Simulated assay, not measured.
Amino acid sequence: MKYKNILQIDDDYDDCDFFLEALEEVSTAAYTAIHNPIQALHQLSNNEIHPDLIFLDINMPIMTGIELLEEIKKKDTISDIPIIIFSTSITTEIKNKIKLLGAADYYTKPNDFGKLKTLLKDLILKKT
């Protein structure tokens, strides 16, 4: 397993619960959800959490996922953590911007539990 510590930054508690349920069925990776992007940036910057992979939502209050992605990529100590944008809708404009900012990839959140499990299995277990 390539990724052992997964961080999801998403203000939607239900989406995080759904994600965790699917993750637990396909992986033994440790999981942390942070619902406030400012708090996530603080904990990452202060080395309080150590994810191998970040799933980041775009549409959040206070700070958008794109703004958070920019901030993370500015910090040498955490800029190398792969970030996957994981949002309900991703326009072509956003896809272009997040690639320029250094996102590893992007996916639209599946509403189907089986599809989410397959996606997570492919992302977390099969990449070597």
Rank of each mutant, 00 (worst) to 15 (best):
N96H: 14
E67Y: 04
I72H: 08
I54S: 06
D52M: 14
A40Q: 07
S87D: 00
L44P: 03
Q43S: 15
Q39D: 15
E48D: 15
I62R: 13
Q39L: 12
L41C: 00
I78K: 10
I38R: 14
E48Q: 15
P37S: 05
F86L: 05
L101G: 00
K95G: 08
I94W: 05
G65N: 03
I81E: 11
M60P: 06
G65A: 01
N47S: 14
N96D: 14
L68T: 08
S45D: 03
I58W: 06
P37Q: 06
D76V: 08
I66F: 12
I78V: 02
T77Q: 14
P51R: 02
P82N: 09
I85E: 09
L68V: 02
N46H: 15
M63V: 03
H42R: 14
I94D: 04
I49K: 06
I90D: 08
I78L: 07
I85K: 00
I94S: 05
I85C: 03
D80R: 08
D57H: 02
N36M: 11
E67Q: 12
I83P: 09
P61Q: 10
M63F: 03
I54P: 10
E70F: 10
I84L: 10
K97T: 13
L101S: 01
D57S: 08
L68C: 07
L41P: 07
E70Q: 15
P37R: 07
L53D: 01
S89C: 05
I84K: 05
D76F: 13
N96L: 11
E70S: 14
F86I: 00
P61S: 11
K73T: 01
M60Q: 08
I38Q: 14
L101R: 03
I72L: 14
T64I: 04
I85G: 05
A40G: 14
I54W: 11
D76G: 11
S45M: 12
M63R: 12
D76M: 14
P61F: 01
M63S: 03
H42Y: 15
N46W: 10
K74Y: 14
F55N: 01
I90N: 08
P51H: 11
I84T: 07
L68D: 06
E93M: 04
I94G: 07
I98W: 04
E48N: 09
N59C: 09
N59R: 12
L101E: 02
K74S: 08
I66G: 09
T92W: 13
L44Q: 02
S87Y: 05
I94F: 00
P37T: 04
I49D: 03
L41D: 08
T88N: 09
H42N: 13
L68K: 06
D80F: 11
P37M: 03
T77H: 12
G65I: 04
T91C: 00
K95M: 13
E48F: 13
K97I: 10
